[in-house]
Structure formats: C-alpha cells, structure tokens
Design a protein around this nucleic acid. Structure first.
Lengths: 182, 182
DNA sequence: AAGTACGTAAAGTTTTTTCTGAACGCTGAA
DNA sequence: TTCAGCGTTCAGAAAAAACTTTACGTACTT
C-alpha cells in the first residue's frame, strides 16, 4: 500500500516536527514558526513562501515573518534559484551552529546590557559611599547593594566567557561533538 | 540631604532591577516576575507576599504565582520564620547555580522530549525501510528523513552532555568562575 | 467549635501577541 | 509605459497571556 507507507513516513515526520516546535519557545520561537522550521527540515528542496503557506495552511504574511525570525537566528537561509522570481529558503542543518548563534544573538545581547547596567550602578554606589556622609542605615543598604551587584557582575563575566567558548567553538574541546571520538 | 542619598541608591537599584527583568525572557520569565526577582535581590530581609505586592503595586495573587515561578527555577527560596504565619521568601544568591538549574529544568526537559520523539520516529522509519518494498520515491524521502533525524539526534546527545557538564559543575573546570584563578 | 489570617484556585478583565487580508512598492516582462 | 507577480508593511481581528477580583480550603487562635 503506497498510501500506507506514506502515512507512516508522514506520521514519523510530524511527531518530530511537532515536538521540536513545541520546545522551541526556549529559543524564543513561537510554535507556528517552529512548525515552519520543522517543515523545512524534512524538505529536500528549498521552499517558497507560497509552498510554506500551503503546507501549514497559513497566510503568506505569516510565512514571511516566520522565515525572517528563523533567518535572524541563522536557522534558515535564503537560496538563489535562477529562473524564478520567488525567494527560496532552506534550513541550515548545522544544529550546533544554530545553538551557538542563538546564544550569540540573544544571551550575549542580554549579557552586555546587564553588565552595562550593573557597572553603571556599581560606580554610582561606590561614589556615593566614598564622597558623602551617610547615615548608618543608608550606608548599610549601599553596602548590601554593592555586594549584590558585584556578585552579579562576577556571574555575568563568567557567562560572557562561556559564550566566548561557544562562539570560538572551544567548547567542543571540552564537550566533543561525538561521544566516542578521539 | 538624606532623601537625596536615598534617591541615588534607589535609582541605582532600579536600573539594575529593570535591566535584569527586561532580559529575563531568556529564562522564560515575564517582566513582572523579573521585577519581583530584582526587588527581592536588594532586600536584606526575606519578604512576604504582602510586602511584595506593596513594593510592586500588584495583587497578592500575582506575587503568589510569580514567586512560584521563581521557586520552580530555584531562584527564590521559601524561608521558615517562626512567630509568623506568613510565608517568607528570599533570593538564592548563587547565580551560577541559577543558570545551571535553568538548564536542568527547562533545557534538559526539552532535550529529553526531543530525543524521545526523534528516536521513536527514527525506529519507525528504519523498520519501514527494511521490511517493506518501497517505491523509489518513498524510499528517498525515508532516507532523507532518517538522515535529518540522525543529525538532530547527534546534536541533542551533545546538548545533553553539555547539560551534564553544567549539572556536575565540570563546566567550571573549562570556564572557571573567576578569570584569574589558579 | 467558630472565627480569622493566609495562600491559592477559578473566573473574568485587560493587555499583549499572533495571525490575516488588504494595500503598497518594487522588479522584471510585454 | 503598463502590467503582473512578488515580498512586505499596516490596520484590524482573533487568540493567548497576564493580571485582578472573588471565592474557597486550610490551619492557627480563641
């Protein structure tokens, strides 16, 4: 039964697609966009926006925004096809790199913002602590705040180094891509 | 000016609180819950739900759910105070551990789900491939799907090992907590 | 046992996000 | 130049999430 075989195949694909999509909120990706990614994943050809809309039963507009989200994370690439005016897209199959790009894009960004705010406030508080005569009560609160901020700063500097090790791929020295590899 | 000093202090705190909160969507944490975390961070005493609601100008119910979210991620702990019937909460100050717990709770969970789905579909497809007579067209699609799934599986097993290295704290051998530490 | 204080569940409201359909601008073809 | 096909912007509709109010169950107090 040809149809039966196809059903098995598609069911197997759909399970994967749906599961992956459901867990992609960790990447800040919405479920529908996750489904789009999954759909592209099992395509041996690149897809156009119309084909995606067809496959998911959604509007072309949604496909456009979804595909852009995925491109921002380097999970999908635009492909040049001569002879057609439509844009073609296909998945970037290097999941390791996807993971790394995610961290680069999102976590690095947050990390920098946080470090900046922490440093700025830390400096203000240190100045306050040194230049002004503080009541004991205020002084204690300032001290505590400084301690908390220094504590957080230390962590974010660590996180930054961790992200460095992802970006440089040094992490693979520590956690190799394949388990039993020399 | 006592009031002026307090203003400087509070502004410094608020900058940190707001920045941290804003970037906590990476942890799957809503901004208000992030603000709650930040508020607790600069408290040298534990807080009750009522105090939190007071501090943030929000309902006690919201504080209840917010604090639960933070507890699920081990970012906040419930403290026993004798003499009062109210629950008291305070932040867990070990940010490294917070980060690790986040990965344990969320990423590990997603990882396991995905591995499970990938393995199940992989097995189905391998069975299909071996036991049935397939048309060439179907056979190719099955082969491609298997390749994609194996590829993803390899990545998730790596991710799983990465998370292991967080949970076991081995990661700190590779990326030390403090930069210039022997 | 009755009353009070507390945390949380449930239902409803408001706000935010996601999705769609229409309209626009651009590019290549006739 | 005009027209058709494409991706995207924009405004509005639908769906989801966050927040609040009300109500409930439990545990301590009297």
């Amino acid at each position: 039964m040809d149809t039966n075989q196809e059903k098995i195949l598609e069911k197997a694909q759909e399970r994967v697609i749906e599961t992956l999509a459901r867990n992609m909120d960790l990447y800040g990706i919405t479920m529908s966009t996750g489904l789009l990614y999954g759909t592209l994943l099992f395509q041996d050809k690149s897809m156009t926006l119309d084909e995606m809309g067809e496959a998911l039963g959604m509007s072309k507009t949604s496909m456009s925004t979804g595909v852009r989200t995925l491109m921002d994370l380097n999970m999908v690439e635009k492909i040049w096809k001569k002879g057609t005016r439509k844009d073609h897209y296909e998945v970037n199959l290097d999941w390791y790199q996807n993971f790394i790009d995610l961290f680069s894009v999102k976590w690095r960004h947050a990390c920098e913002h946080n470090v900046h705010a922490l440093k700025k406030s830390l400096q203000e508080l240190r100045t306050l602590q040194q230049t002004e005569e503080l009541t004991e009560e205020i002084s204690e609160r300032v001290d505590l705040s400084i301690k908390r901020i220094e504590n957080g700063l230390e962590y974010y500097l660590w996180l930054s180094r961790l992200i460095d090790s992802f970006e440089s791929h040094d992490i693979f020295q520590f956690v190799p891509k394949k388990e039993n590899e020399s």
